[in-house]
Each structure stands twice: as C-alpha cells, then as structure tokens.
C-alpha cells in the first residue's frame, strides 16, 4: 500500500508540471498581454496599464525572459504559494482565493453529498424494479433532469419561487439577507440555509441524475452476479441480499466516480454563483475574466486543477480501500 501510494504520488509530478505549464503559457501568450506590453491600451480605457502594473506583470510572467526560464521562476514562486497580486485591488491572489473558497467548497460539497444520498436509493430502486413502471418513471425523470441546463433551471426556479410573479418563498440573491448582522445565531443560520436552497438544488440535480443512472447500471450488474444466487441459497432475506450483498459491490464504482464530478461541479458553480450573486470562487473567476485580471485568472485555474488532480488521487486511493480485490503491494 505504501509503495503504491508513493508511486501514485510520484506520477502526479508530470501531470502537475503539465497543468501549470499549460495555464502559464495560455495566460502569458494571450494576445492581450503582448498588446499591453507595447504600452497600448485595449479598445476600452480600463485596460490601459500604469507603469507600475506593467512592471509587476513583467516580473510575474517573466515577459522579458524566454518562456521556460520564466516558467521555472514562476513555479518557484508557486511552491512558496506566491501567485502574484490582483490587478484590480492589488491584494494577493492566494488571499483572495482563500476568502472565497469556503463558500464554493460548501456549495459543491453539499451538492455532492445530496446527489449521493438521493441518487443511490433512486438507482437501487430502479434496478430492483427493472423494467417496471417505477423503473421507467425514475429513469425518464432522471433523463429529463440530466438534459436541463442548470442556468435555465435556476432562472425558472427564481421566477417561480423566489420573488417572481408567482411564489415568494425563498430569497433571490446573495448569501444572507441585508439585516443578517442583527440576527441571532439560529435566525442567521436559517437565513443562510434559505439562501442556499436554490443554488444547491441547481448545482445538485445534474450530478444527481448522472450518479443515479450510474448507480442503476452498477446495481443491475451486481444483481446479475453468481454470488447473489449463493446469498439467496443461504436463505438470506431479500432485503439483505440487495442492500448488503449487491449494494456493497455496486458501491465500489459509484463511490469512486465522485472525482469525475468535481470538475463538473466547479464548472456549474461558476454559473450558479454568478446567477445567485454568491461571493464564491466561481464568481471571483467570472469577475476576474471580465476585468482581465490575469494573475487571479491564472491563480484560480491552477488552484482548481490541482484540487481536481488531488480528487482523482483520492478516488484512486479510495478504490484500493473499498475493493479488497485490489491490493497494491
């Protein structure tokens, strides 16, 4: 296990280098940079730079050096967690990400958790009732959900239940009401939860439908195995045969696909945070893109991709932990 871990972690190095190199070159070689370097502003005035900003940028990307020396130096700074300063407010990118990550992580985390909690029972029920009305209804619903774009769902939900012409049950924007600072602890928490319901729903249902379809197939495969017959031949009640013998096997692939959902959830968070005006990392990314805040753009991209890579690592390790057949010695 230890040897496997070490080997698996060593394999991360080339991928990490690839991720950072790609991001670095993408941002450094962007035509905008070259134009800025020549001192010419873009078509809008806001993009003209002060001499000080230009100095900072030349230092950050090593624009006066060849790409690879510049990359090596940038990596050196990256290992010291120095991603440069934002062009917008001159604060360190690491600090800016740091104060935003909590919200995005809790959004994506609860979306993932709820997806799993709902999707697995749905998939299991559909698999048990294979071909019957229940199965068809679940499969079709999940299929339709899978095809609804999250932003369209978000808009329609706002229209229907959040202060549109119809119901006014939930708040439309933000993380808390304006008077949140005057609230007691529980009132504040309830207020926060109400604000999070719609964003989490919009972020959840896509992953939910994907995972439940996956769970159904995985469960069907498990139920078709010989050991299910053995379990029945032992006289085990059907509930145990399904929930213990079959589900335990089906869960192995289901659990490990969580890593594949990470990039999807982060993509979704960019849209959802923007629609619901939630000050998370997605919104920061979006604002930085609009302001052409290159250090922040690059910082977030590198940060998110490394996070995803770690997610894949975790999934691989989890696979070894939950499947006794796989032992890397």
């Amino acid at each position: 296990m230890t040897t496997y871990l070490i080997r698996r972690i060593l394999l991360l190095v080339p991928t990490l280098l690839g991720i950072t190199l790609l991001t670095f070159l993408l941002v450094r070689e962007a035509p905008g940079n070259i134009a800025l370097m020549k001192g010419a502003g873009g078509e809008n005035g806001s993009r003209a730079m002060t001499a000080e900003q230009r100095e900072a940028m030349i230092k950050l990307y090593g624009l006066d050096k060849d790409p690879f020396t510049a990359y090596a130096e940038w990596i050196g700074r990256l290992t010291r967690l120095d991603l440069g300063d934002s062009w917008v407010d001159h604060r360190s990118v690491v600090a800016k990400i740091g104060e935003r990550i909590g919200l995005t992580a809790s959004l994506a985390g609860s979306a993932l958790l709820i997806s799993y909690l709902v999707a697995i029972p749905l998939g299991v029920i559909a698999a048990i009732k294979r071909g019957q009305v229940t199965d068809r209804a679940i499969s079709f619903t999940v299929f339709v959900l899978y095809s609804i774009p999250s932003f369209a769902a978000a808009l329609l939900l706002i229209l229907l239940v959040a202060g549109g012409d119809y119901l006014n049950l939930l708040p439309m924007y933000g993380t808390n009401s304006i008077n949140a600072s005057e609230m007691g602890r529980f009132e504040w928490l309830w207020d926060r939860i109400q604000h999070m319901i719609l964003p989490v729903i919009c972020l959840t249902y896509g992953s939910l439908s994907y995972i439940s379809r996956y769970a159904r197939v995985s469960m069907l495969e498990a139920l078709a195995q010989d050991f299910i017959r053995t379990a029945r031949a032992k006289g085990l009640p059907e509930r145990l045969v399904i929930l213990h013998h079959a589900l335990r096997n089906a869960l192995i692939p289901i659990i490990t696909i969580f890593a594949l959902e990470l990039p999807v959830l982060i993509s979704g968070a960019v849209i959802i945070e923007e629609i619901f005006s939630l000050p998370g990392m997605g919104q920061l990314m979006f604002a930085s893109l609009e302001a052409r805040d290159n250090p922040t753009i690059m910082g977030i991209t590198v940060f998110v991709s490394i996070l995803t890579l770690l997610g894949y690592l975790l999934a691989d390790i989890l696979y070894v932990v939950v499947d006794p057949r796989i032992r890397y010695e």
């Binding site: 050991f227 053995t230 013998h245 335990r248 192995i252 499947d323």
Partner: peptide, 12 residues
Amino acid sequence: FQEPSSSLNPVF
C-alpha cells in the same frame, strides 16, 4: 455451485 470464483461475494 459450479463457479466458486464468482459464487463467493468478493467484498466479504
């Protein structure tokens, strides 16, 4: 049964 390798549950 015939196939012992698949008749035993691999995760227990």
